[in-house]
């Protein structure tokens, strides 16, 4: 495979992703600002805006919050990193093949 080293770097980063979960906890930091669910919003301002509540649960992602049912938090995060990378690479190849310039065969 071309650029094999770069793919190995990606694999290394995948293996390191649990640190992306551990680091904020270590420093007592919460999640990203403004990415709360309707219940959390209710806790913060005392009510959940009607439209927000209606749309917020529109889609239930299979691996919500980068967790995998039946696994621990860290292993779920790692498995999510793997699943997500495979999905993105596959879609990346499909979309890439669709849009790329067709070189004339020589």
């Amino acid at each position: 495979m071309k650029n094999k080293k770069l793919w190995l770097i990606l694999l290394m980063l995948i293996i390191l992703t649990p640190f992306g979960l551990i680091l904020p906890k270590l420093f007592g930091a919460g999640g990203a600002w403004g990415e709360w669910g309707a219940q959390e919003i209710q806790k913060i301002i005392g009510y959940a805006p009607l439209g927000l509540k209606r749309l917020n649960e529109l889609w239930r992602a299979p691996f919500s919050g980068y967790g995998v049912r039946g696994t621990g938090e860290l292993s779920g995060y790692l498995i999510s990193a793997l699943i997500g990378s495979v999905l993105v690479v596959v879609i990346g190849f499909l979309v890439g093949r669709m849009v790329a310039r067709r070189d004339k065969k020589r």
Binding site: F19, L23, A81, V88
Partner: peptide, 25 residues
Amino acid sequence: LAVSEVPLLALGAALSFILMMFNFP
């Protein structure tokens, strides 16, 4: 975009995906 650059596009997309999993506090 050349066909030969497609793997790089897929790799770049995956790199971005993984990078966004590294949360800094």
